[in-house]
């Protein structure tokens, strides 16, 4: 078992190291700049060298890891996540996903990568309007060309996993926020992607729905799925095996909370974990008249 505060990967050109965990994603010298000239926003810059040249962000995530990305507002978390999810292209730098250089893929191959390798969960749920939960979850399978019966079976299994089997026929406007987010989780994991990316998945949820969603995420990670999520809440970050902090477009600290192999912290000793919940403050707020 190796614990590293800053993962040191061999350069991409070097021969793969036979021992040690497999990196599922690796970004090298990643820079993202919005706009030009004086108005340019350096959303992802990394350390700047003596000549003022941006070195870019380096990050490696291994198979089975559970990474929480934290940082203040505007620090570039979503920018990084959108690039990791192949929703946006970096200004410069390389992104290797499962060994494939994403920068060299064309539009159609990118859609395949998004469909097969990545499950993306948004803060604002982003369900397709006027579509039932079941159809919603079937959608990625439909794009993958899975047959109707098989699609139905797998979508139903995913919905059961998030505890929404009885809401399969409900449309997004008939579901609570927490339920919508669980549908979104089901949709993200139905294709069995190599990794699950989540941009503030609990940002719009109350503490109970947050626990529901995190419990699912914990179980998925325990089952071997790689998870990268963005959060502002320490309570959420507590569930991760590793916490990466961004400040002003660079990685400021990278802390491992639990070993890469093995269960996520919440499942190692559930009772002990629950006793340290940071929700207490919320609970008190609810008791004082806050609604649920």
């Amino acid at each position: 078992m190796r614990l590293r505060s800053r993962p040191q990967q061999p350069p991409p050109t070097a021969a793969p190291v036979p021992r040690g965990p497999v990196p599922i994603l690796a970004v090298r010298k990643l820079v993202k700049t919005y706009g030009h000239g004086d108005a340019a926003v350096h959303a992802l810059a990394g350390p700047v060298d003596a000549d003022g040249v941006e070195q870019g962000v380096d990050l490696t995530v291994h198979q089975g890891d559970f990474v929480a990305i934290m940082g203040s507002s505007g620090s570039g978390k979503s920018t990084l996540m959108n690039i990791l999810g192949c929703l946006d292209a970096p200004t410069s730098g390389r992104y290797l996903l499962d060994g494939i250089d994403v920068g060299h893929l064309d539009e159609h191959q990118l859609s395949l990568v998004r469909n097969r390798k990545i499950g993306f969960i948004f803060q604002s749920f982003n369900l397709v309007p006027r579509t039932t939960a079941l159809a919603q979850v079937e959608l990625p399978l439909a794009y993958a060309g899975v047959k109707a019966a098989e699609r139905r079976r797998r979508a139903m299994a995913a919905l059961t996993l998030v505890g929404l089997a009885d809401r399969a026929d409900h449309r997004p406007n008939e579901l609570s926020g927490g339920q919508q987010q669980r549908v979104a989780v089901a949709r993200a994991l139905v294709t069995s992607p190599a990794m699950l990316l989540a941009d503030e998945p609990t940002g719009n949820l109350d503490s109970r729905s947050t626990d529901d969603v995190l419990a699912i995420v914990d179980r998925l990670n325990a089952a071997g799925r790689t998870i990268v999520l963005i959060t502002h809440e320490d309570e959420v970050a507590r569930h991760a095996k590793r916490v990466v902090r961004l400040v002003d477009g660079q990685i400021y600290e990278d802390i491992r909370q639990a070993p890469l192999q093995g269960l996520p912290p919440a499942l190692q000793d559930p009772v002990e974990f629950a006793s340290h919940t940071l929700h207490v403050g919320h609970v008190r707020a609810h008791a004082n008249g806050g609604d649920r």
Binding site: E107, S111, V113, N126, L127, Y143
Partner: peptide, 14 residues
């Protein structure tokens, strides 16, 4: 937005 969602979950352009 819906198009964005569909593309994000892997809908090809075609």
């Amino acid at each position: 937005r819906e198009i964005g969602i569909r593309k994000a979950i892997g809908a090809p352009k075609g």
